[in-house]
Amino acid sequence: MSLLAKAPAIRLTALWAAFDAKPAFDWLRAPEVGGAMVRGRMGGTGGAFNLGEMTVTRCSLRLTDGAENGVIGHAYVQGRDKTKAEIAALVDALMQTPSANAVKSAVLEPLLTEGKAAKTDRAAKAAATKVEFFTMVRGED
């Protein structure tokens, strides 16, 4: 679910579009856009303070097809993309069914690989800016 929450909507939609076994479902809670108040720690390690909100979209659904009938999926994803939330909830539901492996290799694994690659790329650029400062010895005056 963490992977789905952070995935770029465009990639998740594209990967889902290529996935054949899309199940039928009913909404338990249609996608709804809201906010979550993000909290920080005072001084980085101390007690809580309210930092500011972020947008979140949530939904819940129930699969209605044959063997998967009744399986429930939830999603809480960053941003305001209702389609992203719907796909995330469907993936969450399918992960509890025999289709788990198929959806994992079609959607979750590519997201994981791409997420890691983006992170490594960023870290590599940061590493290139690592700096060694030298203090100069001052003169007599």
Binding site: V33, V38, R39, G40, R41, G44, T45, N50, K125, F134
Partner: peptide
Amino acid sequence: YRTTLPRFGYTLLVETAKMDCIRRISATFK
């Protein structure tokens, strides 16, 4: 706009010690 958003809840405390840093400098320790 934010006043129109339903509040889903408060998050856990973000752990800045676990931040994926793109920048990190100190003026006190070389």
